[in-house]
Amino acid sequence: MSVLVYAEHDNATLNKVTLSVLAAAKEIGGDITVLVAGKGCGAVAEEAAKAEGVSKVLCADNDAYEHQLAENIAELVAEVGADYKHILAAATTTGKNFAPRVAALLDVAQISEISDVIDGDTFKRPIYAGNAIATVKCADEKKVITVRGTSFDGVAAEGGSASVENLDVVKDSGLSSFVSEELAKSDRPELTSADIVISGGRGMGNGDNFEILYKVADKLGAAVGASRAAVDAGFVPNDMQVGQTGKIVAPQLYMAVGISGAIQHLAGMKDSKVIVAINKDEEAPIFQVADYGLVADLFEAVPELDSKL
């Protein structure tokens, strides 16, 4: 029994979510191999080799893998994965992009966004925007799985000493090519891995008003998110969206400011340890999931909060 874990990275550093995927791999059991595919990604492979429980790292360093194009990555993973019983990737936009393609190439099912491992064949996963949890059992010999990062506490990043092996497998489909990328630049922690997240909703009124959230966030070392309503209204970019179709977060503290709490938003944050809601509408559904609710005008409450931290 052995598990192949696909590493999530930006060619420079290993994304923390991979440590959570490794935790899921550990629960499944067996030898764990990490596959790092990218360009100039040697440092990522070295980092992965240090993670707890990893026995081997395979590094596929080639131009074809630089931008994680699904066509090329899927071919690579399907070939390398031939020797493994489980193939795991993070349920990020990268993992969700190539994992179903791998499964189809191998003629097996893919199991999306598992939140729990029961045994090597059986997993739990949220369905209907997290309004139901399904326990699913897969009959296929090989399992291709994406893992919801926030559902697993990551393994230790340090302490391991796996070997790194360079893989000379080049898969370049020629079907797709990278054109450009617009990545949000921020000094704040990343949404999905931050300990504290402060999100604003339609109640923020406009993008400039998010400034008051940024001030509080910087005091607390928090990440800033938004509801779909705020994103659709053009207040902030889409990569800040928390919810069923945005990012799934589960921080120690989640503060929802001016967010009414549509089920699609709740699906993205209800596993947070402590939830605070600030809203002027006392009937807002967000209060039903909040540990601490404050009925107040956010434009008064947030600056006051800022001054008292």
Binding site: N131, A132, A134, T135, V136, K137, A139, K270, D291, E304
Partner: peptide, 23 residues
């Protein structure tokens, strides 16, 4: 290829408290 063994309602969050002020 996948059988659904069971479907459950997710764990409910227990009701929280309302606070009266930022303090």
């Amino acid at each position: 290829r996948v059988t659904i063994e069971k479907v459950e309602t997710p764990a409910e969050r227990k009701a929280g408290v309302m606070v009266g002020s930022v303090d």
